[in-house]
Design a binder for these strands. Structure first.
Lengths: 262, 262
DNA sequence: CATTTTGTTACTATAATAGTAACACTAATT
DNA sequence: AATTAGTGTTACTATTATAGTAACAAAATG
């Protein structure tokens, strides 16, 4: 948790970046007041920040209505930030290798607070095609989320549950807090997580943690995803746990070398 | 040209973003003093900005040496900025359509100052594979650059030439300023630009402008790229000018609707 | 071990931002 | 057409955040 009140923290920069973060695939356009209310920044300050971003080319303003959109500079910054992220470059070959060896769908993600940031993903054509968001909230309903929760310390876990309001996404989603807690406990002793069609109907996943081996802390997770009609859970557990744990081990080595920590 | 001295411009935000812009594929790691000298920001202020970016997760610091790298937050911001850019989403189908109809390599870019920002690209396997940078400086040596220059007003063109120091990239690259000026003039009357192996040996390109039809200004360009061994320049000019101009027209419509202007 | 370089902290004058409030302008409603 | 509500933009200062100097610590270098 950052101590944001020291002298060596720029609130202005934080505000500016929080504005840029409001734009994305599902929000290509926003208005000034919308930005002001969403960020909690007063309207004049919002205007200053937005105006700055426009002048620098990160945002642009429609002429008719004055709605704001991403500008060319945001596009190029985005490209560089995406492809310049060394962990992304490092995990690609690891996941690709496993993908071509075993022909299974694989996903990976990093923790950011109590969210998962999707890192790199390969999907088999047999899987129900689902367009996953880049940042995912539902830790309790996904294999990657469960294994992350199982590796948090009890204080962090309490803090997570204190604000949690589970949403039922499939008939099998766990929505009772006690059920979720029990599942997390089981996951911890098991060493890997199971998502039995709780997030998307027809998809079974197993997950393992990406650990920083130096600090002994979770920083993300990998998962293998299977179509339930072709793969019963029992056979997955018999055949693929080794693959999963090997992959997670390789990913953990990468993470540890890169010095990622949460 | 932005008037950056008004009250409604945040210098702090500008500095913070300029730091983030120093990172990318070819510069995954940088030191504090490096950042300070490159941006011209005083060391303490750099420290404040960098510290902020670290606390927010946009940068991370190596434990041993204290070198800085992009963090997970920069990765997710990058992804959203890239895929949330509506012009990118809009130009994809246009270029894909032409690509599948004519089986030729196609490139597109937007202007940013006197640089080109690569937008979307499709490449045929017959083309010499070249890894283009996302931001390109050599306007004088590329088809997309030439057509952009040909559409600038004389003041802007003078300003461009006043700082230009051409680099010879192939035996055919124009390095004499007078030669370049003559070529720009010829391009202007021709209506499309020709790059005859001046940027990469063995690659001939033709370029046309993406115009904002409302403001009558250039905002970018598209180009068709051919391997010179299979396509002599004469046959390209006979067969593909129509394709090029149609594509440029469609791209211009998109740009105009989006309200992109330079 | 001495020397240079790089990162971090202390301190304060100055400049930049926050926030209130008023204003212009458009869109919606009557 | 007139009224209202809403959004974006500007004016104006108190406040506070930042810039920059300088000193210091900690590595890196020789």
């Amino acid at each position: 948790m950052p101590s944001k009140q020291d002298q060596y923290f720029s609130k202005t920069l934080e505000k500016g970046l929080s504005i840029l973060n409001l734009f994305g695939r599902e929000h290509p356009s926003r208005s000034l007041t919308e930005i002001s209310t969403l960020t909690g920044i007063n309207k004049t300050s919002t205007y200053r920040m937005v105006n700055t971003l426009i002048q620098l080319g990160y945002l642009r303003k429609s002429l008719n209505d004055k709605s704001l959109r991403l500008g060319p500079k945001a596009f190029s910054l985005g490209h560089e930030c995406f492809h310049g992220f060394d962990v992304y470059q490092g995990i690609k070959p690891i996941i690709d290798k496993t993908f071509f060896e075993h022909h299974i769908s694989i996903d990976s993600a990093l923790i950011d607070g109590y969210k998962l940031i999707s890192l790199y993903r390969r999907e088999m054509p047999n899987l129900v095609s689902f367009h996953l968001p880049l940042i995912m909230d539902e830790l309790y309903a996904r294999a990657m989320g469960k294994i992350v929760l199982a590796n948090l310390d009890s204080a962090a876990l309490d803090s997570y549950f204190s604000t949690l309001e589970p949403i039922r996404m499939t008939p099998r989603t766990l929505v009772d807090i006690q059920d979720i807690k029990a599942d997390i406990k089981a996951t911890k002793t098991r060493g890997y997580s199971i998502n039995n069609m709780e997030y998307i109907a027809g998809v079974i996943s197993i997950g393992a943690p990406m650990m920083n081996l130096t600090t002994k802390s979770v920083v993300g997770a990998v998962s293998l995803d299977f179509p339930s009609k072709d793969y019963p859970l029992e056979s997955i557990e018999q055949q693929y746990i080794g693959v999963l744990l090997t992959l997670a081990g390789e990913a953990s080595d990468l993470i540890t070398n890169a010095g990622i920590r949460s």
